[in-house]
């Protein structure tokens, strides 16, 4: 049970950390100043959530583990984030599509975590839900504007949603850890969240004049530590400083 709770918390924390790190790549490269700042804000929100979750995971693990040790001194195979979040940013459309598919899921996930039996996860959810709600609104607005924008933006965002669909499916594939956490009242019901997510996504895509992709298989493995080749490069950049100068202080 303790081990499953650590795994569950790491998944939440790694999702926030890896997506946050990906979003920071847009800093200074956004299509326009305002969007650059918006994405950097969201990256910081994600990193803030990652810190709370990794602190909790470190505390549960004990043995002198710390948030920094978890973020900077774990290997690729020890990360538990969804594959969707480690994929390269691609163009603005792909970044927005990924953000929308995940933010919508994350909104329902954190809403459910507000009722978690685990006091710390509940408290983290209370803090995170406000940020997550804003992210979900923001990315949905962007999907609508790109979909219902120019021919080029419509084409690109549709391609992005189509190409990310199989990766998004991983969010709803429950394994033994998810099932135990649900049974204990700590974790969320992914089947219920899938239904809510599908309804919301269908609604936004319709407003955006975009097609809902056909049902497809799910890319899986991220939650268990089997990652794509993209994660290694991301970690190499993120971890290089503390690994080169382990005693470095800000």
């Amino acid at each position: 049970m303790q081990n499953e709770l650590v795994q569950y918390t790491l998944r939440l924390g790694d999702n926030a950390l890896i997506l946050g790190q990906r979003l920071t790549e847009w800093c200074g490269h956004g299509p326009i100043l305002e969007q650059d700042i918006a994405l950097s804000n969201m990256a910081l929100d994600q990193l803030g959530q990652a810190r709370m979750l990794l602190q909790y995971a470190a505390q549960l693990k004990g043995e002198g583990s710390t948030e920094d040790a978890l973020a900077f001194f774990r290997q690729e195979g020890e990360f538990r984030n969804l594959l969707l979040l480690e994929l390269e940013n691609g163009d603005w459309g792909k970044t927005i599509a990924r953000q929308f598919l995940f933010d919508t899921f994350n909104y329902f996930q954190y809403t459910a975590l507000l009722q978690s039996e685990d006091e710390t996860l509940r408290a983290i959810a209370q803090k995170a839900i406000k940020e997550v709600t804003y992210h979900a609104q923001w990315s949905a607005e962007w999907v609508i504007r790109l979909g219902d924008g120019t021919d080029e933006s419509h084409k690109r965002i549709q391609e992005a949603v189509d190409s990310l669909w199989e990766w998004a499916n991983e969010m709803f594939v429950a394994d033994a850890v998810d099932e135990l956490m649900l049974e204990k009242g700590i974790g969320v019901n992914l089947t219920e969240i899938h239904a809510l997510w599908e309804e919301k996504v269908a609604q936004v895509l319709a407003m955006a004049t975009l097609q809902m992709p056909a049902e497809t298989w799910a890319q899986t493995g991220g939650k268990q530590g089997d990652h794509t080749e993209s994660l290694g490069f991301l970690l190499a950049e993120m971890q290089s400083l503390p690994r080169t100068y382990p005693e470095a202080k800000w």
Partner: peptide, 19 residues
């Protein structure tokens, strides 16, 4: 700031001016 429409202008303003 720049924005394509009023709603996005509010969101951009939130991000640029109320952080």
């Amino acid at each position: 700031l720049h924005a394509p429409d009023a709603e996005m202008a509010i969101k951009n303003a939130r991000d640029v001016y109320t952080r």
